[in-house]
């Protein structure tokens, strides 16, 4: 057992090194406070109500500037909508199709397999409509910010996006803000082109939840975390089963090892 313990110690040391050496730790800036999310931790899952409210916030507020290119309407079944509801939602959008027999592109009603339409046809069009700034695609925004989807010890991408959405205030004295820019506590460099877009009562929730600014931010962050990895719950569920199986298997292997080695002593 001493040897096993030595190995365990070695493993722990290796892990500690990896933690220490994590380059993302070197990135400076104001750290977002950690939030309690239902989807945190090994057994965390998404609150279906929050996902659907978050979709409403995305659709009514964010979608006018930000695309969500990796999400198709059919994926919305993952936030707890029925196929009929998804088909109805898709039917409210139009997408470009074609060319038809005359070689013309045309608009048609969206169907569930279609990706969500983008607000701008290309980056240049997005910039010209947004004072020169390019609103990023939001499909992976939670995953693409320190420290991504899961972290044992640090704020995650979800914490950052939440902090950003609720982190606007007046610039401190002496801070020179560029034209058309806003001061944000958590954005690197504190100057952000996106205006403070979430306001109390800015949306009217279908389910009657009071739409405070922080409620909208929480809901849309939950939705965007789901959008970054729609398989998150399936992954963790499978992980719990696999881990339990492996622990039992390894215990049996250890017992077998003891038995086989008994006659070698």
């Amino acid at each position: 057992m001493t040897r096993l313990r030595t190995i365990a110690r070695g493993m722990a040391a290796t892990l500690a090194v990896i933690l220490l050496a994590n380059p993302a730790l070197a990135a400076g800036g104001v750290e977002a406070p950690r939030q309690q999310w239902g989807f945190n931790g090994i057994f965390g899952t998404f609150d279906r109500g929050a996902l659907q409210r978050g979709w409403q916030v995305y659709r009514e507020v964010c979608a006018s500037c930000h695309s969500l290119e990796f999400i198709a309407f059919r994926n919305l079944e993952g936030i707890g909508l029925t196929p009929e509801q998804v088909a109805a939602i898709a039917g409210e959008f139009e997408v470009q199709a074609g060319p038809n027999d005359e070689g013309e592109m045309y608009m048609r009603r969206a169907i569930p397999p279609d990706r969500l339409p983008k607000p701008f046809p290309n980056a240049a069009a997005a910039r010209v409509a947004n004072n020169g700034a390019l609103p990023p695609d939001l499909s992976l925004i939670v995953e693409a910010r320190p420290f991504g989807m899961e972290s044992f010890y640090k704020p995650t991408g979800a914490d950052y996006v939440y902090a950003l959405l609720t982190g606007y205030h007046e610039p401190p004295e002496g801070f020179v803000l560029g034209a058309g820019m806003y001061y944000n506590e958590y954005f690197p460099g504190h100057q952000i082109a996106m205006p403070p877009i979430l306001n109390d009562g800015g949306v009217t929730y279908v389910d009657g939840t009071e739409a405070t600014q922080s409620q909208q931010a929480r809901d849309v962050v939950t939705f965007l975390t789901w959008a970054a990895e729609p398989n998150l719950e399936e992954r963790r569920q499978m992980g719990v089963g696999v881990t339990l199986f492996l622990i039992v298997l390894t215990a049996f292997l250890y017992a077998t090892k003891r038995k086989i080695w008994a006659d070698a002593h």
Binding site: F147, G157, R235, R236, M238, V240
Partner: peptide, 10 residues
Amino acid sequence: FFAPNFFGEP
């Protein structure tokens, strides 16, 4: 299963 991007870069 539980921290697949731990070693990666956001």
